[in-house]
Design a protein around this nucleic acid. Structure first.
Lengths: 351, 351
DNA sequence: TAAAAAAGTGTGTTCGAACACACTTTTTTG
DNA sequence: CAAAAAAGTGTGTTCGAACACACTTTTTTA
């Protein structure tokens, strides 16, 4: 029951028979308190449930916190665009409490850019950093620096292997692959040729797609007397024109494929060139980019798995802000749901 | 850009060359200000973007708000259980701001209980009411009373026809029916017998299931050269035992049905008695009750549509609290996403 | 035109937490 | 055992908004 009286420091002081200064010292463990006084105050604190008035605290502090958002430039990869909205939303909530955000973008195709912008972030004297650790090795170096500088940080979008996932927010990518598999399986029902397609995978350190592939295969591996054939294809590019040709060539060479699982948001490139000849086909990919939605609506794509970058960014900022402002503990279970999107329910997920 | 200086009333007073008392009177339009002073202050206010410090305001007011949650007793219909968690979550966030909640439960099978508990709520001198308007006519009477008493209210779970949906939060039930149809369609692929099943529908005024049915049918109606047969069945009960027999009888009498669309959370009652004889079958229902999840995991149910009662309750309380505390405008687009759940992604949605 | 009423203005207090500072009491040290 | 250092305690101010109240100036009234 939360129907209790709200106690103030003054109330506690009176109950304990000491001054509010003493109560304050006890609460903040600032010492300069005798054993007797400490006991008196602690007894009162044990009996009542003291909840400091956050408004008063915040007003007194009047602190301003600057958070840094270190993420790929949305102009280079549009996947990241919704993050900006998520940050905006978090700011609406937290700017009255003195939370500000500095955006630092890097080129997701360029390790050096990540390293360089990471240094920019660290030199900006921010109070906390939220980052998308695209490059495994460089990111580990970066967070080690953060730790040595005692600077709070928060990872989102993808986790780092062999880093404890305490301050991470994102999805279970392995499970996400299993979901893709389940969707294709329940649509095709047996005796089908299925392709796992990695498009444009040049993030050298990235493990997203490998994780998704593992999950995808684990689903089909577990099926009894399955008559599905699963093959993996990598469609890389040097320039955009070249990539289009590669994809076209791939499609033409593989008319036998019934199920397509594209492991990232680039599925629109495939969908643009794909003709749905047979009744029994299934195309599954990732993310609600406008281009992807186009092909979802016209029936070329069956399902999109929603990685919800907006919510990831929102939560990263919000949780870090909560931690800084109110010393709230960041919950360690920070996996967000994996939404299944089709042509009938996508409306609820865009805005 | 949010990078501006935060102005205080004192700042404005200095800039305008008047006292803070005068500024205060101008801002709150409390009169007792000369034309000259008014002009000086307004000029300053026009130039800067004054945003009052909400913390200071709230601290001064030190108001407490009591919200009333008028909803079905979760003990009678477990669908409503997650709402309690949602309210809890909202309270975690807002109780430091002096928001409290009084729960008032009614029996969802009993109109009179709704009316009676509605009166209880109104007599409790609460500052706002969140309600699940299960009974159309009675609810309209209720919110009219709220309006005449100038008591803020908020609807959730289902909307009222011919009420403007300004203060409503929930899902688009028609669209939700279309999603059910789409899932069955993409799983069965042609020449199939599909059943819309209303179990235990004795909420006389309830329109949920009718809306879902309309949406469901609209999807199949729009298909070109469709060879699906859609039939509606109502399985009512007088007592639990009786209902089980009714369902058993229904299943035995209709071995021809390939697709089952159950329009509410009672799908577990069907699933308990259903044998999946053929390869090509599809069972779709609503809500992540533990019983439903059981049959989702074991493969009897293919999809559950998640109405997210927890989130609905959370948002209702949070939006009403924001409105009361900070005069925030409640956004009028208050439809929440309709999540598609299968055996691979349900984990992300329960906690 | 003096007294009374009204209009206009500024000062000071309050909300609760945080902390500086001054003060008192105890302990340590030469 | 006095002086100095340390430990313990209470008072008072601050953050920004809101508003009561006292004060000054102008306008109205007899």
């Amino acid at each position: 029951m939360q129907r209790m009286k709200k106690y103030t420091i003054k109330d506690i002081a009176e109950l304990a028979g000491v001054s509010k200064g003493t109560v304050d010292r006890v609460i903040h463990k600032r010492g300069r308190v005798s054993a007797t006084a400490l006991k008196k105050v602690n007894n009162v604190l044990r009996d009542i449930d003291y909840q400091p008035n956050l408004m008063a605290r915040s007003l007194k502090h009047n602190k301003h916190f600057l958070l840094c958002m270190l993420m790929p430039d949305p102009k280079i990869d549009p996947y990241w665009k919704p993050c900006l909205d998520g940050i905006e939303e978090a700011l609406n909530e937290f700017s009255p409490f003195g939370i500000h955000v500095k955006h630092v973008f890097f080129n997701p195709f360029d390790k050096d850019s990540f390293v360089k912008q990471g240094e920019t972030a660290l030199h900006a004297d921010v109070d906390g950093i939220v980052l998308a650790p695209l490059f495994q090795k460089e990111s580990i170096t970066f967070i080690k620096t953060c730790e040595s500088l005692n600077k709070p940080y928060f990872l989102f979008n993808n986790d780092l292997k062999d880093a404890d996932s305490q301050n991470f927010i994102g999805q279970d990518l392995y499970q996400s692959g299993r979901i893709g598999a389940k969707l294709i399986h329940s649509t095709l029902r047996g005796n089908a040729e299925v392709a796992i397609i990695h498009i444009d995978e040049i993030y050298k350190n990235a493990t997203h797609m490998q994780e998704k592939e593992k999950g995808f295969r684990s689903y089909f591996d577990a099926l009894e007397n399955s008559d599905f054939t699963i093959k993996t294809y990598k469609l890389k590019h040097r320039d955009a024109n070249n990539l289009k040709k590669t994809i076209k060539y791939f499609i033409d060479m593989h008319p036998e494929i019934d199920g397509f699982f594209v492991t990232n948001s680039k599925i629109n490139l495939l969908a643009a060139l794909l003709k749905r000849t047979r009744e029994s086909m299934c195309v599954v990919g990732y993310d609600l980019l406008p281009e992807n939605l186009h092909y979802l609506k016209n029936g070329t794509i069956d399902y999109l798995i929603h990685q919800n970058p907006k919510r990831q960014a929102y939560l990263s900022v919000a949780l870090l802000a909560d931690a800084l402002l109110f010393n709230k503990v960041i919950p360690n279970k920070n996996l967000i749901p994996i939404d299944i999107i089709n042509s009938e329910n996508y409306m609820g997920y865009i805005n």
